[in-house]
Amino acid sequence: MDFILSDGKSTNTKGYRTNVLGILLERFKANPVMLFDHDTGKVIGRWENIRIEDDKLMATPVFDLDDPQGKEVARKVDKNFLRAASIGIMPLRLEYINDEFVLVESELMEASIVPIPSDAGAIRLYNEKLEELSFDQVKVNFNFNNNKQKSNEMAEVVFRLSHKTVEILGLEADYTPKDVELAVAEKDKEIEKLKADLKAVEKQSQTDYLNNAEKAGKISAVERLSFEKMAEKGCFEDVKTMIDAKAETATETLADKVNKSSITAGRENWDYLKWMKEDSAGLEKLRAENPKEFERLQLTIKK
């Protein structure tokens, strides 16, 4: 007759269920000893045709009839006095799923004929040294220090929010934890949008400040590029301090110099190429007398 070594659909009396599909069988199949009641000193045969059917771990017993105890157990099985089996496994992964502990992965170490069915409590848990473990020890090893009842209590936490918080989140009087989660997520989106808008305003403000500084002749176009890089790194206050200090010592703006220059008189709208074509000698003179204006004209080529 075949035995059900473990039923993956049943929760045993120790408070957990074994996922049969997650039981590793390779090592056991290499030495499929049959014990009596998990006693390694009582080898009464071997298991054959080890397989999984309908979420059950199944096997066929082959009794050692030359062994007195094996022969006696075989007789009791044949007479229907013994008809239960149990497995000894090494836990590999424990999870808490749908309000119950589940040994998701394990390795089969031995299988026994027992007086009590495996999933009613006779299942054994071992460590790598084949030392027997309690389920509480297994939970601690997998950082499940709380028991099933505590886990249920954690899953049913009642949120108690202040009236102001409920109002801000736009919750109904009978809100659930899920409602709170969704409302907070929506507020997070609003906050991220506000941050993005604020960043855009700050960026525009910085651009306007640098534009005005350049137009006023406080900084050159080349200096502006350096200041922009500093601002992008979050150092705009330092940039502003440097430009403001520079402005205090400025006695003459670029606009003043352009207006005073006899070279540029009447040619304020000329670009660099126009100067090269119409008055290259004047352009050279401008470079010597008004280098900032000459630098500005060079930039018009790039534009």
Results as ranks from 00 to 15, higher is better:
Ala281Gln: 04
Ile23Val: 15
Lys274Pro: 04
Val140Ser: 13
Leu82Ala: 00
Leu92Ile: 05
Tyr209Lys: 11
Gln149Asp: 08
Lys164His: 13
Lys246Val: 08
Asn145Tyr: 11
Ala265Cys: 06
Leu103Asn: 07
Gln204Lys: 11
Ala85Cys: 07
Ala183His: 06
Lys274Phe: 02
Glu105Asn: 06
Lys257Arg: 14
Gln204Thr: 11
Lys199Tyr: 09
Ile23Gln: 05
Ser86Tyr: 00
Ala255Pro: 10
Leu286Ser: 02
Asp39Trp: 06
Lys187Glu: 14
Thr176Gly: 00
Gly45His: 00
Phe294Ala: 07
Phe3Thr: 04
Asp256Tyr: 01
Thr253Trp: 00
Asn98His: 11
Glu181Lys: 15
Asp66Ser: 13
Leu198Lys: 11
Lys29Pro: 03
Trp275Thr: 06
Leu125Pro: 08
Asp279Arg: 06
Asp7Gln: 08
Val158Arg: 10
Glu192Met: 10
Thr60Cys: 12
Ile4Met: 08
Ala30Leu: 07
Val114Trp: 02
Ile113Ala: 05
Asp66Met: 13
Trp270Thr: 01
Glu214Tyr: 09
Leu171Asn: 04
Gln137Gly: 08
Lys302Phe: 13
Ala74Tyr: 07
Glu107Asp: 09
Arg51Glu: 04
Val62Gly: 09
Trp47Asp: 03
Ala74Gly: 08
Ile301Arg: 11
Arg160Thr: 12
Arg287Tyr: 09
Gln69Ala: 08
Gly217Val: 00
Pro32Leu: 09
Ile116Arg: 02
Glu110Cys: 12
Ala281Ser: 10
Ser134Asp: 06
Ser262Cys: 03
Ala221Gly: 15
Gln206Ser: 00
Glu26His: 12
Leu299His: 12
Ser118Asn: 13
Thr251Ala: 12
Glu95Thr: 09
Thr176Cys: 03
Ile219Lys: 01
Phe101Pro: 08
Tyr209Thr: 02
Leu130Val: 10
Thr300Met: 06
Glu284Val: 02
Asn269Tyr: 15
Ala122Arg: 05
Leu198Trp: 11
Ile23Ser: 07
Asp99Ala: 05
Val184Pro: 06
Gly121Met: 01
Ala30Cys: 09
Ala221Cys: 06
Glu278Ser: 11
Gly41Glu: 10
Trp47Leu: 04
Ala85Asp: 01
Pro91Trp: 02
Leu171Val: 01
Arg93Glu: 14
Val157Thr: 09
Ala231Val: 03
Tyr126Glu: 11
Lys199Gln: 11
Leu225Arg: 13
Ala122Asn: 13
Thr249Trp: 00
Thr40Pro: 15
Lys260His: 07
Leu65Arg: 06
Thr176Glu: 02
Ile87Arg: 04
Ala200Leu: 03
